[in-house]
Design a protein around this nucleic acid. Structure first.
Lengths: 234, 234
DNA sequence: ACCTGAACACCGTTCAAGT
DNA sequence: ACCTGAACACCGTTCAAGT
């Protein structure tokens, strides 16, 4: 009924940065710093304003609302990812390079995990990466819709892996929670499921999480790439 | 320094439901209704209290904080998923059945998408599903850590696919946004990337989204299963 | 044992007013 | 053109007080 329009920062021209005063870049940079330091819940318009020695509401001159701010910082994240230039017959390299890079970037900026999917990836950096990824799959031999399918499969795997990883890290980080107490917790919760419990115990996974997770990520990634390869041959 | 403990609803005995008054189940049921009707941002302790004809803060008798409430509703969602009983040589069926079921459940309860990864899946329903899934991969022939790897790969793919799907739906749903305006928006944003633009145009994807997304999901799922199968043979 | 209302410390956003 | 403070309508949570 309302007919509310779909809107995005990327549709509006940014206010031209004239005087050396506040600018959109400056705001985004400060926002990323705040996010890195205090997480997604730590970013408020008031705090960001304060950090910039400005009134809380000054920001609304540069940005229509908080969602637009999030769109901007989200694209910033995409800018940190590397997508190796696709070369003939080496699409695995492009895909693998992108996957590892994206994972690292999100692990470095954990707040980004909760933005994935929630914020449309329509910024220049996100589009650039997607386009390059699509090119790699095209060179690989995918056609039409299947190019998108392949890109989506890859990014879905990376997103779906890294989101829970970050969540786990955050649970751990909340004021020096020790792994021991989590382990006990999980063991108790899992007491009714002997298979899970058994595997928890036999794993070194609780003493060497990061390494195990790296292996896990590579394992699944290899599976996804193999599976895509198989679709190509057919 | 603080030594804050990891905590979860699943570690505390629930208050025994004595009188026919409020109970944890009742609260959870009301919360799910509220979430289905108004989304994750629509759930507040005050509104939930009102819905139950109770003061906003009465809920804190049954639940330590909002996070615990979210743990409860999240496990409710896991309870709606079906994981076909694994049978010899048919692990693909179990995996595929689970994948489609989980996707449908999250599409039906879109708020759950933002809970994935954020809320630890330690409830009885989540653990039950995981255990059954693990059993299927064990029967399939995976060993030790690889059982977990395989489960994680599968769920990562499903999560990573469905989270952006839901986000897209929500963007569309916000007060009758018409697809036409989104299409124009995206086309403009993508103007610098002829390959993407071209593919957008050649696709029927914008006129028949749900069907295209079903195909996309099945395509990627098949790739993931093939890839896991390949890891098995080696 | 269970429920209440007042209070605290926050939010995002609007808007009339300033320079 | 840019920034401000006051105000509005919300939050989650604590706590002393009620029954």
């Amino acid at each position: 009924m309302t007919g509310k329009q779909f809107s995005s920062v990327w549709l509006r021209e940014p206010r031209p940065a004239r005087s050396p005063g506040r600018s959109r870049e400056e705001i985004v940079r400060a926002a990323v710093e705040l996010l890195d330091a205090e997480g997604l819940d730590g970013l408020s318009m008031r705090k960001l304003g304060a950090k910039l020695d400005a009134g809380a509401t000054s920001l609304y001159w540069y940005v229509a609302n908080k969602h637009e701010l999030l769109e901007l910082v989200y694209d910033e994240i995409w800018g940190e990812m590397t997508v190796p230039e696709p070369r003939d017959g080496r699409w695995h390299e492009t895909a693998r390079g992108f996957a590892h890079s994206m994972r690292q970037v999100v692990l470095r900026h954990p707040w980004a995990a909760r933005l994935i999917g929630r914020i449309p990836a329509l910024g220049p950096n996100a589009l650039g990466s997607s386009a390059r990824l699509a090119r790699a799959f095209k060179i690989a031999g995918f056609r039409g819709l299947e190019i998108d399918y392949a890109v989506s499969t890859l990014t879905a795997y990376v997103f779906g892996t890294v989101i829970p990883e970050v969540a786990y890290n955050e649970t751990m980080a909340e004021g020096a929670v020790d792994e021991q107490s989590v382990r006990e917790t999980v063991e108790r919760a899992v007491a009714d499921h002997p298979e899970i419990l058994e595997r928890l115990r036999e794993n070194a996974s609780f003493t060497d999480t990061e390494q195990v997770r790296e292996m896990m990520f590579s394992f699944g990634l290899a599976a996804v790439l193999d599976g895509l390869e198989a679709r190509l041959v057919t």
